[in-house]
Amino acid sequence: MAERPAEIQAANVKLLEELCQPGDFLEGKIRGALVRETFKATATCPSCRKIQEERDYVLKSDLWNVVCSGKCEFHEPEACYGLGVVVHALCNLQNLMSEEWYNQAAEHIFKCLSASEKIPDTQEDKLARLAEVIAVVGLAVGVRAFYRSLPEGPLEEPPLPTAAEGKPRFTSAAEVFNRLGPREGHGWGAGLNLEDVKPGLMVKGAKFIGGEFSKRKFTGLSPMNKWAPALSAGSLFLRWATVVYSPIQNGYESHSFMFKKAPGRALNRVGLEDVAAGYTTAVGAASDAMATWPLPKR
């Protein structure tokens, strides 16, 4: 990192600017509020900290009600357009989440957004907006954690940009599918492990051809699969990760990348994963002891 401070700083500044612009389904003012709330709430909210301290007594199926009744301190007007409870859970309580929480979050986001704009009342549209909220908050957490992990001196945390005016790119999930259109030989979705496919599985009355939808075509373990539902935010992540983490383009997404150093990088993928594993273990131990959480504010 020491040899590339300007490149890394520029990538972070650009990402923050783009996160505060209109997205696929969210206005710029909403995304900007999500980013600001994330920066101010991550690892600092007293209510979230109390929930973590008492996590052994929190039922994951009841997390939504626990957060809503926890009286979190919100920093954006109108509790971050009503989305503050979602932001705080995403940035502070990931380890307590369950499928129930995501379903309740999708309904809550729809309720908040539909109060001021007309949104199709479909499950696809609810989940699409949830995916974008998760992507914006997740990227903001990543940028904030990056700067908080640095020693004093190398890089200064950039100021949060003003939210950009403008409407989202799409009005509905159906519009996305119609605009993308079918392309022969292309697909969008997670892959399947062939060994997990049940014999005799049928698709639209025809025999299922498992190989066409296997990991040979879609890499189910690829981190980019997690970002696919977020559309343009996934593209932002890819560009940012290419600078800050490691190149995922130009052949470095292949298996050889596991043992091959990318240009200008000191570690290959195996080395990076070793570092990540060590970090996760250390943070996990520290979290159990509640000794270093929250981190000192920069």
Rank of each mutant, 00 (worst) to 15 (best):
K111W: 11
G138A: 10
E273M: 15
F237G: 06
P5M: 04
V203Y: 14
E54D: 11
S254A: 09
E100V: 10
G82W: 09
R4G: 02
G138P: 02
A282S: 13
V85G: 03
K207H: 14
V270L: 13
E53W: 04
T219W: 09
E132V: 03
K226H: 11
L59Y: 13
P296A: 12
A106L: 05
R216G: 13
K111I: 01
K198W: 08
V243R: 10
G191E: 06
A10W: 00
S98K: 07
V87G: 04
N178V: 06
I109D: 02
T38K: 01
A41I: 05
E7R: 13
A10D: 08
I134N: 10
G181A: 07
N193K: 14
C20Q: 00
W240Y: 15
E117D: 09
P46A: 08
G205D: 10
L180W: 08
M290F: 12
V283D: 06
V58T: 11
E212F: 11
R49F: 09
S222F: 09
L93P: 01
E117H: 09
V244S: 05
G185L: 06
D196I: 02
S47V: 07
A140M: 05
P159E: 08
V283Y: 12
V141H: 02
Q9C: 05
K40D: 10
R148A: 06
Y102P: 05
A277M: 10
L231R: 08
K50R: 15
S222Y: 09
G70Y: 04
N193H: 13
G211Y: 09
P5C: 06
V85D: 07
W293F: 14
C112P: 00
R179L: 14
L113M: 12
L201N: 06
A228E: 13
L236S: 05
L295F: 12
D56V: 00
L139Y: 01
V197H: 08
A282Q: 12
I51Y: 05
E273H: 15
C112S: 04
L59I: 11
R179W: 11
N12W: 05
P182H: 11
R55Q: 11
W227H: 07
Y102G: 02
F208C: 11
E7A: 15
L96G: 01
E124S: 14
G211A: 07
N268H: 15
A79M: 13
F218M: 13
V136P: 02
F170W: 12
S69V: 00
A131L: 01
A173S: 14
A131R: 00
R129K: 08
R148K: 10
G32Y: 04
A291F: 02
E76T: 03
T122C: 07
M224G: 00
R31D: 02
L63Q: 08
L238Q: 11
L113N: 05
C80L: 02
K29F: 04
L201P: 00
C112H: 00
T281F: 10
F213L: 13
K14V: 04
D274F: 11
E7F: 04
